[in-house]
């Protein structure tokens, strides 16, 4: 059974605007429309899209704090908005830009308060706390007030806070924003291990595509409130008209190479750039070039994921 199931999800907002001195115009904005997807337990899914595309709206509907205007939605078998409190005990939420911890309390006190909020049994609490404190190296920081923590330390505290009650689903909203390269790497490693060992379902929204590449086998791209792509990361590369590039270094200068299945984009002395669809195999192109020309060297460039997504957004 899918842990998250959304069918024809729609959310509209009424926007009132002043039009003239007294008159007000009402218009309806679709924040999300015709959104359908399902996520299996244990999946790690990247949810990306430009600002204002509908990411936050979707997450808010999934967590039950926003009611869908239309459509069918089940998270962990529950209707989120109708059973928000019950659902809240089964999900964890981490925001890169906000904290769930209490500013003026030591980390330990925040955790204890959360234990009470989520009614975590003492044994489970102790086990989880020990485990995450060790994995995230928080041991020396437990008695430090949150306001004195660095961003990276606070983030690790926030992750621990979100996991104390053993959630089935973890939503992460830009978890690596502002972190340095080493901290980012460690955090990703931790999330991967969490998914491996506990089978926690991860839904990650981010603008950092390296998060996605490092963690997610599946990507959903949303733009203008609808899904424009849903599939494996590799598929994102091959779909959407992306092209791979074959850089050919010939022994001598030559007119533009002409082989079937590829086109020559650029010629610069003995070096030529050929491109072909990303979902096609490079082998026949390489073979054709090698058969017809005197080749000194070859190299293959995958389309940059950023470019692919930029194209998706532009086409949406």
């Amino acid at each position: 059974m899918s842990i998250i199931e959304a069918r024809d999800l729609e959310r509209t907002f009424a926007v009132r605007r002043r039009a003239g001195r007294l008159r007000r115009e009402r218009s309806t904005v679709h924040a999300v429309r015709d959104l359908s997807f399902s996520i299996e337990a244990g999946e790690m899914v990247g949810y990306i899209g430009p600002n204002g595309a509908g990411k936050s709206t979707t997450i808010k509907m999934l967590t039950g704090i926003l009611v869908p205007t239309a459509g069918h939605l089940r998270v962990a078998g529950l209707d989120p908005s109708a059973r928000r409190t019950e659902l809240a005990r089964r999900i964890g939420v981490v925001f890169g830009q906000r904290t769930t911890l209490w500013w003026d309390l030591p980390l330990r006190d925040s955790f204890e308060l959360l234990q009470r909020i989520y009614r975590v049994p003492p044994a489970t609490y102790r086990r989880n706390l020990d485990r995450y404190v060790e994995l995230l190296a928080l041991g020396d920081l437990l008695d430090t007030p949150v306001r004195q923590l660095s961003l990276g330390q606070r983030m690790r505290g926030d992750i621990t806070a979100a996991l104390l009650h053993d959630p089935d689903i973890l939503y992460l909203d830009e978890p690596t924003i502002g972190l340095d390269v080493v901290s980012k790497g460690r955090l990703r490693e931790f999330l991967r291990a969490l998914n491996d060992e506990r089978g926690t379902t991860l839904l990650l929204t981010t603008h950092d595509l390296q998060d996605i590449e490092a963690l997610c086998s599946r990507v959903m791209v949303v733009d203008h409130g609808t899904l424009v792509f849903d599939g494996p990361l590799a598929g994102l590369r091959s779909g959407g008209g992306a092209r791979r590039t074959l850089v050919v270094d010939l022994v001598d200068e030559a007119p533009p190479i002409d082989v079937p299945g590829a086109s020559t984009d650029r010629v610069e002395g003995p070096r030529q750039w050929l491109s072909f669809p990303a979902d096609a195999s490079a082998a026949p192109v390489v073979a054709a070039v090698a058969a017809a020309y005197d080749v000194a060297d070859l190299s293959l460039q995958e389309p940059a994921i950023e470019d692919v997504i930029r194209e998706l957004y532009a086409g949406g």
Partner: peptide
Amino acid sequence: TGDVVIDLYRPV
């Protein structure tokens, strides 16, 4: 500030 959203995610 909008931080109230965090409070809303909690079961209290």
